[in-house]
Amino acid sequence: MSTPSPQETTGSQAPAALGREDTTGLGRGGTAGLGREDVAHLARLARLALTDEELDHFAGQLSAVLDAVAEVGKADVDDVPPMTHAVPLTNVTREDVVTPSLPRDVVLTQAPAAEDDRFRVPQILGEEE
């Protein structure tokens, strides 16, 4: 999963590239209702460690929301193209010129943890996979 930085504003890309996760755990084709297990599965995909209380609470709320948004299915959209964006811009380019980046030490002062002029992150080697 890519994690764009906050200053990135190229919003025209469809989020679909990130979102097409395998969610076969949900089953296929069902419409209404998100159960507790469904919410837990989606939360795992989104890296959210929801509590038991949240799972109970959100399952009910999200089922109601899902019923409401499923209304889009009523529209007759045969031959209607999808609209991803309001501005008909494609391929915005610029000269490939090197410009200064943000100073490393300034950026690292805002990091949760830094070491040796780098972001320090939790160990990833030795994890399952």
Binding site: A16, G19, R20, L26, G29, L42, A46, F58
Partner: peptide, 13 residues
């Protein structure tokens, strides 16, 4: 986030 993850997921997209 949960709703968006669902709406974008394969099979529901």
């Amino acid at each position: 986030i949960v709703l968006g993850t669902y709406a974008l997921s394969a099979g529901y997209y």
